[in-house]
């Protein structure tokens, strides 16, 4: 059976069918991500004050790694450029050039996911500790030279630990929102290259100990939900693009126009995924 309008535009829409299909799909995706961005706004404006007692803002800042996030943004922007170049290479009838650009695109996608995994692991071993005197610190635990993941106060107590070694973060300046002056001692510590202070905290003095996981604060809940959903899209896009690059290339020999259209459709999805990140990055990392 011949599927109609895979190459030629359908007279009523003026587009080949797959392009209409991908735009309808992307419209539903806009609604999906739009709902999460709305949830982010609602969570943020209703956040309880006091996550940091010394900062009059209920929303945590400075807990994500901005240089890594910026690097990942550059990776995705580069991959968008190369996917377009791959499509253009097919239009110029240059298959080897297409393949090179696609390999680079898929490598960027995998690189992005690898970096994101590293970021997630770093968060799961990062803790916010509230002590009975009302103080709050963040940092990594040091248990026999290892930095455990997903611990809480019950885990610490079940291991009969009396004193907890913590690499306490010296707060970075991003903890203080734009417009707020950063205390001088923090500047001084960073200028001296100090980012952590080793401290021992009595377990009996700890009121709560929570890893940077979704249940710890609505910020982490929405951060992990949105970035994980986005990551799934990156993975899905990478698999499709990899299929077009390595396995599904026979169509190029039999019907090059249809193959070129498939790459365009894949490229449209890839651009959408990258565009979501362009909005996600400033929202969760910077603001």
């Amino acid at each position: 059976m011949d599927i109609p309008y895979t190459v030629k535009p359908r007279p009523d829409t003026g587009l080949y069918n797959a392009k209409v299909g991908i735009w309808l799909f992307l419209a539903s995706e806009v609604m999906l991500f739009g709902a999460f961005f709305s949830a982010y706004i609602l969570l943020r404006v209703t956040a309880q004050h006091g996550f940091w007692p010394d900062v009059a803002d209920g929303w945590p800042h400075g807990l994500l790694n901005i240089p890594i996030g910026t690097f990942n943004t550059a990776v995705l922007i580069s991959s968008s450029v190369t996917v377009v170049m791959a499509w253009m290479a097919l239009k110029e009838n240059n298959f080897p050039k297409f393949r090179n650009f696609m390999i680079f695109t898929v490598a960027c996608a995998l690189g992005f996911l690898g970096i994101k995994t590293f970021e997630y692991k770093e968060k799961f071993s990062h803790y916010v500790i509230r002590t009975t005197d009302g103080k709050v610190v963040t940092g990594h635990l040091d248990v026999d030279g290892k930095s455990p993941l997903f611990w809480n106060l019950d885990t610490v107590k079940s291991k009969n630990i009396e004193k907890l070694k913590v690499e306490v973060d010296i707060p970075n300046k991003y903890r203080f929102p734009v417009g707020m002056h950063v205390p001088e001692d923090i500047h001084k510590a960073h200028a001296e290259g100090r980012h952590h202070d080793e401290k021992e905290i009595e377990v009996s003095q700890i009121e709560s100990l929570k890893a940077f996981i979704p249940s710890t604060h609505p910020f982490f809940a929405i951060y992990f939900t949105m970035t994980f959903l986005h990551g799934l899209h990156v993975l899905g896009g990478a698999l499709v693009l990899a299929y077009f690059t390595f396995i599904g290339t026979d169509l190029w020999k039999t019907n090059p126009e249809q193959f070129t259209n498939r790459i365009e459709v894949g490229g449209l999805f890839w651009h959408f995924v990258d565009l979501v990140w362009i909005f996600l990055f400033p929202v969760v990392y910077l603001l």
């Binding site: 392009k19 968008s80 377009v84 499509w87 365009e264 490229g267 449209l268 651009h271 959408f272 990258d274 565009l275 362009i278």
Partner: peptide, 9 residues
């Protein structure tokens, strides 16, 4: 087209 979307991007 992908060209237009790329320009938007």
């Amino acid at each position: 087209s992908l060209k237009t979307f790329h320009l938007v991007f």
